[in-house]
Nucleic acid binder design. Sequence first.
DNA 1: CTGTTAGCGCGTTCAA
DNA 2: TTGAACGCGCTAACAG
Lengths: 332, 332
Amino acid sequence: MAATIKDIAKLAGVSPATVSRVLANKTAFFSADTAAKVQAAATTLGYQKNTAAAELVTQQSHVIAAIVNSTKTNFANHIIEGIQDAAYRQGLNVIILYAGDADPEQQRRALTTVIERPVRGILLLSVDLSAENLTYLQAAQIPYCFLSISFEEDQLPFITSDDWQVGYQGTQALLAQGHRQVGLAAVDSVHAHTGKLRLAGYTQALMEAGITPDPAWIQPGDYSYVAGQAAMRAYGQAPQVTAVLAGSDMAAIGVLNQARDFGLTVPQDLSIMAIDGTELCELVQPQLSSVSQSFYDMGVAGVEQLTTAQQQPPKITPITVVTRESVRFIES
Amino acid sequence: MAATIKDIAKLAGVSPATVSRVLANKTAFFSADTAAKVQAAATTLGYQKNTAAAELVTQQSHVIAAIVNSTKTNFANHIIEGIQDAAYRQGLNVIILYAGDADPEQQRRALTTVIERPVRGILLLSVDLSAENLTYLQAAQIPYCFLSISFEEDQLPFITSDDWQVGYQGTQALLAQGHRQVGLAAVDSVHAHTGKLRLAGYTQALMEAGITPDPAWIQPGDYSYVAGQAAMRAYGQAPQVTAVLAGSDMAAIGVLNQARDFGLTVPQDLSIMAIDGTELCELVQPQLSSVSQSFYDMGVAGVEQLTTAQQQPPKITPITVVTRESVRFIES
DNA sequence: CTGTTAGCGCGTTCAA
DNA sequence: TTGAACGCGCTAACAG
């Protein structure tokens, strides 16, 4: 059995209350020598504070939870870094839970373990909650914020890139290199708001250039490597598109490898622009140009959103187009 | 303020104890209609159980914590999957903490947040604890187990691959393809036990083939992409080695890309064997042959180690050599 | 089957 | 500056 403040009190010959005070370092509420006695007793007993008990009485917690979509992409780590750093600055601790992949039951499990214990706030990383689970989360009366995902209902707090701009700027960068047949691959433009926004930006960029996208250019998917491969397979061995904007780095690599399997060379035969801009882009050959998102900043902003009391409107983090090696200029 | 069982009790016109019983589903300790009343009251109040309070009295927890070395490699996810699945089967929940990269202070923070609250057990994924932090962990009297790391002191509980075999079999696979100048890259063979074992296995395999490794063949490092690059840079543009065993998938890709920057083609000019065998191996071109580890199984075994009471000896999970495209046969 | 009592480990009154 | 008493939300023991 772990030692408690009572044990320390007995050993030090003081009351539990006093022990509590010196351990909480409520300075000037105790004398130096009692403090010393208590400290000594605590160390000899190997005392470990029971934070759960303390939180029970103070009714407040110092941990924030990040629920992560166990993702087919790989940017979550960057967001988490931002969360950790920002939390640390505020003296908060971070616990991470995996919520499976769009599985409502796993989502519920993660939510429950978090909600059922004192937590200062909840961050949800690209987790698309089922309606039921969203209600459950809201009923819990705990501050929360979605990261790297957006919703039509503006009252939900979320922080993410401007996904319309992601689609728009990514496509524009390709158009600027002379491409006129541009594909959009492995973006979930059917069900999810994020994907719809990207599609709209993509379409707008093309329209402004006087191009009406052929439906075959748009190959929706779930942002995964496999989705990227499937999209490229749909484009075929002699693709009509000369450039592809892919929904994630992973998806872009799927496109890349499938293109290679077709005997196509990137970027000579096909240009690829990834979305995300994680280190994966620099791992493959050729290195992938990308619309890069500010994942670290999302994490930081998420923590701030949680800890500043007042409800704030949805926030946007910046994006930048990074040129690497997977896009080439073509004569139009 | 969240509703408590007292509130429910008042609303349902029963005692708190009764509420507790039906909510904990202590069947046959209450009648059907009181149960109904209680359930109704609970839902109208939007009751959320305070598990922390419950754990305080029952003195036992249903969560296990995984502390992860925020890793320059990428296998942690696979271990975590195994942990999640195994934990789920036992009705346990999993929380994950990041412990930075060999930073004692961050390690301590993670340990503290975990130890200071009721946790059933702690899993440490390739976390090399400082001596001080190890003492701290042991003093906490919480079951723990290291994963994907090994120690000389056999009394520490750990589960990992047989790293001597990793080095031995990886090298043998290269020797079997006719290579006689084989490098070992980005393995931490200087400080860490894991790395020393791999080095020993590597050396033994060479010796058995009648080869004495040139010191220049061994380029230690921290398993990272950058370490892989550095190792390859050390081998040079016209490397003496014809094959390299790299400490991780990431490291292998570092070797691969640096070789390419040197104008070398893999596997024609240089063969590469990765260690780990995650999906990264199939993302790059050529696909990387690997000594693949059973990370998922490590996670499962870790949970079992925690939940079976008796102290068990260190455990080993299997490895397999997977042939892909990065090793070629050469005439000897 | 149900209510009363007690107490988990801690922080915080209120007196002294 | 310190101690006694109380209560956070919950479960367990014991009556009834």
